[in-house]
Design a protein around this nucleic acid. Structure first.
Lengths: 185, 185
DNA sequence: CGCAATTCAATTGCGCACAACTGAATGGTG
DNA sequence: CACCATTCAGTTGTGCGCAATTGAATTGCG
């Protein structure tokens, strides 16, 4: 194929273009707070975060292929292995996921025969997610995953701990920032 | 609604369930390498990463709403603002994104009038992405974004730098791990 | 009790991420 | 020159993430 399909492009004129790829000097630690540096630094923070997150995704994709799980599905299984049967709400709280994400995911886990779902008798609104025998059995097969992942990081455990601490602080700060922003609507 | 729609659940029996939510003692820094601790630590690393990444997403969603951009679209615009017109390939290299992600994204940016796309005359396979006047103009309006984001993190710049460094090392290690795993297929 | 507000899961719609594939253009080799 | 492998963008299909809505069950209040 290789043809520009739809769309209408007529706005392109010959105005001044940004300098094409200037050699960028390393930050002389004098101006760590100058605007230009802030722009770049911030970009790289969230970008690095994004990249690392997706890199993890790649490793997990490999490690979980045998189990037929995606990473989010694996997280749900971890929660269930740890805590036993749980209502959807609780799973969502643990993983910071809402029903819009969990409902179809759980349906896939159910289709794979790993969990079952049933309305709670006490509260008909709530749905309890239970591990099936197959779901329980998978726990053993999944045992190797974390160690192999840890090996893939090739970082000392202390660094990982430090990293986690920083990340959690970051997440907390970002969350409150969003809440604050939402508050003054 | 609230009804369990399709699916077939019959596997649920009454086998032993995992202990329901035991109080978990803090890691006595003696056994930082015991299996059980590794399992939990690793889980929290990638989980924290994921959470932080999504928290960033939330902040960006707020900050970019005025511009009508999503975060990945914003990244593409950043790249174009920095380097000027680029072929799709180069953008993908910068952002670690493939054509499967970029093609529809760029189509949306074109529909929004921010970029135009045209086949390169030298190599008809390549498509050059150009900023339109509107795309260039948006650069000014986007100027505030990074500083506001930096404020939202409420972390000292040095911590962010340290974080970025750790993340980049991590990404590198994970990437090579995936490559190595893929190599012995 | 009766009615409004809340809670919970599910659904819809949109956008991103990625694997797998298509199809055209290019480049290298015999 | 002919042929084949490679490169590049695009498409398809699957799954996640999130906002917004729906609809039923529950709770709270008068």
């Amino acid at each position: 194929m290789a043809k520009l399909p739809e769309t209408a492009s007529e706005t392109a004129t010959d105005v001044a273009r940004p300098e094409p790829d200037v050699a960028r000097p390393e930050p002389d630690d004098a101006d760590l707070l100058r605007d230009e540096h802030l722009l770049r630094l911030d970009q790289q923070i969230c970008f690095s975060l994004n990249a690392a997150s997706r890199a993890f995704g790649g490793v997990y994709r490999v490690l979980l292929k045998d189990l037929g799980l995606t990473y989010p599905q694996y997280l749900v299984m971890l929660v269930l292995w740890e805590h036993g049967d749980l209502p959807v709400k609780r799973i969502g709280e643990r993983l910071r996921l809402d029903s819009g994400t969990l409902s179809p995911l759980l349906k896939r886990l159910e289709a794979a025969g790993l969990v079952s779902r049933e309305r709670s008798p006490e509260d008909e609104r709530s749905v309890t997610v239970r591990l099936t025998d197959a779901g329980l059995a998978m726990r053993d097969r999944a045992g190797q995953v974390p160690r192999r992942l840890l090996a893939a990081t090739s970082l000392p455990v202390e660094d990982l701990a430090a990293l986690r601490s920083l990340l959690d602080r970051l997440t907390g700060a970002l969350d409150t920032a969003v809440l604050a922003a939402g508050a003054d609507d």
